[in-house]
């Protein structure tokens, strides 16, 4: 499994409230959620994001509530992967469970810049910044998580078992 795309870069403590504001939680339609994704933090995200793009952020990405709408909105925006120094733990679980690949790699998260083109190999955890020509080693997904992500989420994974 691989991903390649352009980078949107954010800082520390991006919380679930800015990923998808509570005022839109009356919908669980991924497309509608995606249309408001990140809007309190970055008005341009929705306009610019393309299928395969990558979000890179610093510490504690996804902190706050247990709302699953947050990773759903990101995934439905077309984002192929989120790289961060660290993730808040419920966001981490929720992302895996809905099939959004996320990787912790502090070095890559600090050094990769907005607009860089980045390639990720999920089996090895290798992150390659094509723009800068620098390679990073993130944590590879254990087999179990790869299976969930390949099945497009925990529910499909259970159904296939």
């Amino acid at each position: 499994m691989q991903a390649k795309g352009r980078v949107f870069k954010y800082g520390n403590n991006v919380d679930t409230d800015v990923i998808i504001p509570a005022r839109y939680l009356n919908s669980s339609d991924p497309v509608e959620l995606a249309s408001h994704c990140m809007e309190d933090l970055d008005q341009n995200f929705v306009k610019k994001v393309q299928k395969g793009d990558i979000i890179v952020a610093n510490k504690n990405f996804g902190c706050g509530s247990s709302r699953e709408h947050a990773p759903i909105a990101i995934k439905a925006s077309g984002v192929a992967c989120v790289i961060a120094e660290t993730f808040a733990r419920i966001f981490y679980r929720n992302s895996i469970n809905i099939g959004l690949p996320i990787i912790e790699c502090p070095e890559a998260a600090r050094e990769i810049e907005a607009e860089d083109e980045v390639k990720i190999d999920f089996d090895s955890g290798i992150i390659y910044d094509c723009t800068k020509g620098i390679q990073y080693k993130g944590q590879a997904f254990p087999e179990f998580m790869q299976k969930i992500i390949k099945a497009e989420g925990l529910i499909n994974y259970i159904n296939h078992q």
Partner: peptide
């Protein structure tokens, strides 16, 4: 604490990762 998908899977299977 977990999200709603974990809860759904937990209710169906009695298991969690």
């Amino acid at each position: 604490g977990v999200g709603s998908t974990d809860m759904a899977a937990g209710m169906a299977t009695g298991k969690a990762w």
